[in-house]
Amino acid sequence: MRNVWIFISKYNAFFLLIIFLVISFILLVNNNSYQRASTLNSSNQLVGTAYERINNFTNYLNLGSTNDSLAAENAKLKAALKESYFNDSIVQGEVKDSVKLQQYTYIVAKIVNKSIHQKNNYITINRGSRHGIKKGMGVISSKGIVGIILNVSPNFSTIQSLLHNDTRISASVNNNIGSLIWGEGNYDSRLAILKDIPNHVSVKKGDLVTTSGYSLFPAGLEIGRITKTGIKGGDSFLDIEIQLSTDFSTLQYVYVVNNLLSGEQNELESQNKTE
């Protein structure tokens, strides 16, 4: 205890300073509105900064749920948009020509869902049986062919895309008919393979591949251009790789080909089988 007193008396100036400074400070803060407000302010600032930091941190933790709620809100808002109401109007480009009989009409449709990276890809469009779409119709885009209508509901249809293992489309190159397939080791959405072109046909890189007119599509529609050609060992058919002209990844609008004469054709062809 004695040592403490000695210490204090030795450095009395410092302790006196502390005492008088504290007294003045108390007077200052208690009696001057500016400093009082300032003290509260600075302490508030301290607390506020701490809260802000913690908030910044917890924000990250809540990012997932915040995202979910935002996405839900977005969906709600989008549902209220004009675009989310089903557009029922159908424009079928039909040309009245008395000389020629119209064989094909086109129904424009917007893609609402699609896949391109699967082994078997499908596309959903916002047109269905109410708009005259039937199972088995061909689907084309402004650049090339897209696929075949697989299933139809009143308002929607699904398309078995060209990018599907089971899709076979009759294609012609230099007036030779082959079969266009996709898959079998090639899962690039930009490439397809043309089969069944005999060896003796001369095809060059860059040759145009079109639809043959034998199947669902009108003849002469562009499918793509040949990028690679060659002969597999021992095979009597050429192995042709085609760069598709349809860009499936950016596809938005498609045309459903309505073959007005397909019913008649099918009816006739089905007689062959029954006979």
Binding site: A13, F14, L16, L17, F20, L21, I23, S24, F25, I26, L27, L28, V29, N30, N31, N32
Partner: peptide, 24 residues
């Protein structure tokens, strides 16, 4: 001394604090 000036300046404690430091 600081307090006396403060009374006139209406800044109670301000000059007193400064004068305490001055003394130190």
């Amino acid at each position: 001394t600081g307090l006396t000036v403060d009374v006139f300046y209406d800044t109670l404690g301000l000059n007193a604090a400064a004068c305490s430091v001055l003394a130190f």
